[in-house]
Design a protein around this nucleic acid. Sequence first.
DNA 1: ACCGGTACTTAGTATTACATAATACCATAT
DNA 2: ATATGGTATTATGTAATACTAAGTACCGGT
Lengths: 93, 93
Amino acid sequence: MLEIISRGETYGYEITQQLRQLGFTDVVEGTVYTITMRLEKNNLVDIEKKPSTIGPPRKFYTLNTAGKAHLENFWGKWAFVSSKVNELKNKRR
Amino acid sequence: MLEIISRGETYGYEITQQLRQLGFTDVVEGTVYTITMRLEKNNLVDIEKKPSTIGPPRKFYTLNTAGKAHLENFWGKWAFVSSKVNELKNKRR
DNA sequence: ACCGGTACTTAGTATTACATAATACCATAT
DNA sequence: ATATGGTATTATGTAATACTAAGTACCGGT
């Protein structure tokens, strides 16, 4: 979700749809919501509310400096963990 | 941990050491223990207690049929999730 | 007036992650 | 004997995370 938000401001409902398109077909809005709430709580995002012509107002998120740092930190951890897990996988019988 | 156990019977303390050697340097025994407890609770392992000459008895774990199935299921999920995450990573700016 | 799609929020449970500390066994050195 | 250090499991508690179901509300079209 941090990575998705990093590509440009977006909002919960749209994030849900993007995740579903990515293949996480059974992600529901509630799941995404708890994560956006966490991002807010941890001050990793800036928030802007904008009206929509086709529904209720949208709450747009963008990564702030801390959010970007957090994302970079995540990618570092991902590189480490995924390489270790793949190492295990490749040694599998 | 399922993968580590799948390579041959082993016990908590040894698993901790293996994980540390793998690079997860700050894994402590308590963390491993909660996971072995979960494996027991979910009936994914067979248990055999054997004496040790250099300390208290060891509780050896081996994967049972359900455990092996669970592991295979994990590798399937891993292939999916890691490919999706890497897809995101590679599109990163 | 209702319906379906859009959109956020609430509230709750179950699981997971992790740390700290306690207990106990054994060999070796003092 | 006893102190110590490595080996090994167990107990207990807290915080974070994952996930679901249901509720509220806004809007356009029939």
